[in-house]
Write a protein that binds this DNA or RNA. Structure first.
Lengths: 118, 118
DNA sequence: CCGCTCCTTCGACGCCCGTCGTAGTATGGC
DNA sequence: GCCATACTACGACGGGCGTCGAAGGAGCGG
């Protein structure tokens, strides 16, 4: 009966309603994670985990991606063997109005770049 | 020659231009410090250090006030033997547009109260 | 001058989080 | 089938931050 190849490699992106303010603020308080946010905002489109320029090891990067995903700052999905990441500012805005937008803007400014139009 | 009573008890509130995004986000990432922010916003006017309802010791509270002041989230000034605290959202807005406003709003919501009009 | 109230400073301590390397799993190409 | 690639899971380690209590300075009222 068409075995589901052991694990179809799915990611569960939490619902915004499960995120706490504490979680969100802790997530964006780390410089490495803010770098992820900035690179995503500047790129203007999804990026695979491997294409980020981060000053930490791969396993540490995975950890940071998890934190960001659980805080609903990014959403992730597999695409073959690579994992794509995108910002999800709109959802979170309903729960914490203006907050993530402002953080993203500040992250981009901090990195000295300009975000691409969406 | 009119001795300056040893120490006139002055507080130096840093300039907004010296604050980093890292500093600001770390400051608001702590629940005790967010409680300070919420209580100030709800009160709608200055509060002395002693009037806050915080789940930590006095010395720890002092530490948190310092962190908030150095991040330009609050400004402090002595008034006799008590030290008064006020939010200073306007200054910081120039450097990190919308950020502190959004944080304050979320802090107030988090505490389940409604802020007084200013 | 004395004591009371506020708040600060200092040193110590414990825990949590960011970090790493290694080993492991899933996918795709040949 | 088999290897290469991409990411994850796990356990361990270290440093930093939040916490406290004790001791102390500053102003105010008698």
């Amino acid at each position: 009966m068409a075995r589901p190849k052991s694990t179809p490699r799915t990611v569960d992106n939490p619902s915004v309603s499960e995120v706490t303010l504490q979680q969100l603020l802790e997530a964006v308080a780390d410089p490495v994670r803010r770098s992820v946010i900035a690179q995503l905002a500047i790129a203007g489109h999804d990026l695979s985990c491997g294409t980020f320029d981060l000053p930490v090891s791969r396993s540490t990067a995975t950890h940071h991606f998890n934190v960001l995903r659980e805080a609903c700052v990014i959403s992730q999905h597999y695409q073959g063997t690579t994992k794509m990441n995108s910002l999800r500012p709109d959802d979170l805005d309903a729960r914490f109005p203006g907050l993530l937008r402002a953080v993203i803007d500040s992250c981009v400014r901090e990195s000295g770049q300009v975000a691409q139009a969406r």
